[in-house]
């Protein structure tokens, strides 16, 4: 294939990766930023969203688009509720100690994966896309749905931004992020804020999963990769900086798409991984974070 179309394909693929990554990572970033919690189960919440989308597709009659729309609303709510429950029942009692939360969320990850394996099974199962439009470009074909995923991700992220900046809930969250004790002194129910933030973070992962599942199938081990990549994106972007997370998602998604298109794939992955590590070594606060120590 000629260079131009080749690059175009790489960029389109990168954009899809970036969009889904941005959604998943912004959920992690919220939890990270506001609660200072490393949520290892974030990938499991992502997986849960995809698995629930499959169940929804089985149960909701009518055209796939209807089931998809239902899944897009119901799955994040269910996943969010599970997350809120986990927060109140477990994380709160641990007082959000970093090491304890890591172990607890690893435990949670095992429990959720086992639940998916027992109830959903070990196979990768497809979920029909709400619509099937194939764009036939002169050089290659491309899925129209993938482009819709990018658009949907942008809309959801805009929504998150509006909530954070322009609603009372967002104000409360930001206040809690800056100083939890002062927030409490001003009558903010910090416990509820935390449960809400944890639920929202998980819900965002679930939305990302519902969007990606017509492309990638639901599978009980699918959470590993999104977790790793989201972590990288959040750190590279700078802890707790939502803007940084978005830029980093775009950067990582696009470069992943382009680099692995033009170089020996495994070697490219090695180099890309090392580059991420070195960026952090020489700029530990991330690209957009401010140095705190």
């Amino acid at each position: 294939m000629e260079f131009g179309p080749f690059l175009l394909l790489a960029l389109m693929e990168g954009l899809v990766t970036a969009a889904v990554l941005a959604l998943t990572a912004s959920g992690l970033s919220l939890v990270f930023g506001i609660m200072r919690v490393v949520n290892v189960a974030h990938g499991a919440f992502f997986m849960l969203g995809a698995v629930l989308a499959w169940f929804t597709a089985q149960w909701v009659p009518g055209p796939p688009a209807v089931a998809f729309a239902v899944a897009l609303i119901v799955c994040p709510l269910i996943v969010g509720a599970i997350a809120a429950l986990a927060d109140t029942a477990i994380l709160k009692r641990l007082n959000y100690e970093p090491e304890a939360t890591i172990v607890a969320t690893i435990g949670l990850l095992y429990i959720l994966e086992q639940a998916a394996l027992s109830l959903f099974g070990p196979d990768a199962r497809p979920v029909p896309a709400p619509f099937n439009i194939r764009l036939q470009l002169p050089w290659f074909g491309y899925s129209g749905y993938k482009l819709a995923v990018v658009a949907a991700a942008i809309i959801v992220l805009l929504g998150v931004w509006l909530i954070l900046k322009h609603t009372r809930a967002g104000l409360v969250m930001r206040a809690t992020q800056i100083d939890r004790d002062t927030a409490r002194a001003f009558g903010i129910n910090v416990d509820r804020v935390y449960a809400g933030v944890f639920a929202m973070g998980a819900g965002l992962a679930a939305i990302a999963a519902v969007l990606i599942v017509p492309i990638q199938q639901a599978h009980y081990l699918m959470g590993g990769d999104p977790l790793l990549l989201s972590f990288i994106v959040v750190i590279i972007g700078g802890l707790g900086s939502l803007r940084g997370t978005l830029v980093a998602a775009l950067l990582i998604g696009l470069s992943d798409g382009v680099i692995s298109t033009f170089f020996a794939p495994t070697l490219a992955k090695i180099i890309a991984t090392l580059v991420v590590a070195l960026v952090l070594v020489f700029r530990p606060q991330g690209l957009f974070g401010t140095r705190t120590t």
């Binding site: 490393v38 972590f231 495994t266 090695i270 991984t273 991420v276 070594v281 530990p284």
Partner: peptide, 26 residues
Amino acid sequence: LALRTAGVAFMIVTLMFAQAGYLTIL
């Protein structure tokens, strides 16, 4: 290299190095 960072960044840097090592084996 990694000890220039601390906390969560240290976790990620070590994770990345290990991932690069794993891929190198492959």
